[in-house]
């Protein structure tokens, strides 16, 4: 028996539930008994008496907390789905079911994120912290989370971002959680509706909490301008057989985002041949090796036919 109990308590701790030391107080339905005793003597004879036993039953406190875990999420216009991570915690003292809702019509922002379809609320089932294939869609009335006191569940709001938004525009998306037993003003009573038929009382949260997550449009536009200069074998600039054409590609980013994994591809024009080892980046020479081991800030791949003759043209990267 003792071993069983020990195993049980380890199991509960393993689930993140502290069985005795609840942050949110004595569990709903607990009976608190109180009996006083008196000892005395009458004519030298000791006697004792006990009082009636008072029993106070702990009511269920309905409380919930929704906390945003994601910082502002940088998103480009016209993309999605993008997740916002929240955690919903049962801050009451009973086991409670909560309904979840998304609201994108939040004031004070620049655009409305568009709730993804078919579902916009997911449980972060795989614990990745972001929307991913392993996450379970929330279906209202079907898989409403049932949380023990102090237990929590990670929830994702998943939205698509409308196109053509200005860089820096902010869009808010709210997650709300409401106790199924009831909500309202603190102190509102739901007689007999709590765990095991005890009274349920709305706690300080109103048994209803909502918080908004934030998307920030962080687009980047890469402007690409290509120019060419010709050096002919006679020192002029006429395109003729044997002339070298130097191509220059200037890329100018605008916006607040950083472009990563940027790949620049330029075909070698027909009737021209690449001049080996001619590419450079920001004035620094690059090699033609795929596994560029130079200390330069990029790598170039040679494309097209390579002939080691003097008539090679030089595209300048």
């Amino acid at each position: 028996m003792k071993r069983k109990l020990t195993t049980l308590s380890i199991g509960l701790i393993g689930l993140g539930i502290a069985p005795l030391c609840m942050a949110e107080g004595t569990i709903a339905g607990t009976d608190i008994d109180n009996t006083a005793a008196v000892s005395y003597e009458v004519g030298g004879t000791p006697q004792t008496t006990t009082s009636n036993t008072l029993t106070l039953t702990v009511a269920e406190v309905l409380d919930v907390d929704v906390t945003l875990l994601s910082g502002p999420v940088s998103v480009p216009s016209g993309t999605g789905p993008h997740g916002l991570l929240f955690v919903v915690t049962n801050t009451g003292n009973g086991t409670e079911e909560f309904s979840l809702a998304i609201n994108n019509a939040v004031g004070g922002d620049d655009f409305e994120p568009e709730a993804s379809t078919p579902a916009a609320i997911y449980f972060d089932t795989d614990g990745s912290g972001d929307f991913s294939a392993g996450d379970t869609a929330y279906v209202p009335g079907d898989n409403d989370p049932v949380l023990a006191p102090d237990a929590s569940v990670d929830v994702l709001l998943v939205n698509d971002i409308p196109a053509d938004l200005a860089d820096g525009a902010i869009g808010l998306s709210e997650l709300g959680a409401v106790a199924a037993t009831g909500s309202g003003d603190p102190g509102d009573l739901f007689p007999g509706d709590g765990d095991d038929g005890v009274d349920a009382v709305v706690g300080t949260s109103g048994a209803d909490d909502v918080i908004a997550g934030q998307y920030v449009i962080s687009d980047i536009e890469l402007a690409v301008v290509k120019s060419a200069t010709v050096l002919d074998p006679f020192g002029g600039s006429s395109p003729m057989p044997g002339a070298e054409i130097t191509y220059r590609i200037v890329i100018t980013p605008t916006g607040s985002e950083t472009a990563v994994n940027t790949v620049i591809t330029d075909p070698i024009p027909a009737n021209t041949t690449y001049s080996s080892e001619s590419i450079s980046l920001n004035g620094g020479a690059l090699t033609d090796d795929d596994t560029d081991a130079d200390a330069d800030p990029g790598a170039g791949n040679r494309r097209g036919p390579r002939r080691p003759d003097r008539s090679e043209r030089r595209p300048d990267h």
Partner: peptide, 9 residues
């Protein structure tokens, strides 16, 4: 008993 106790909350 000789002494009664009554308890209330």
């Amino acid at each position: 008993g000789t002494i009664q106790l009554e308890h209330k909350a």
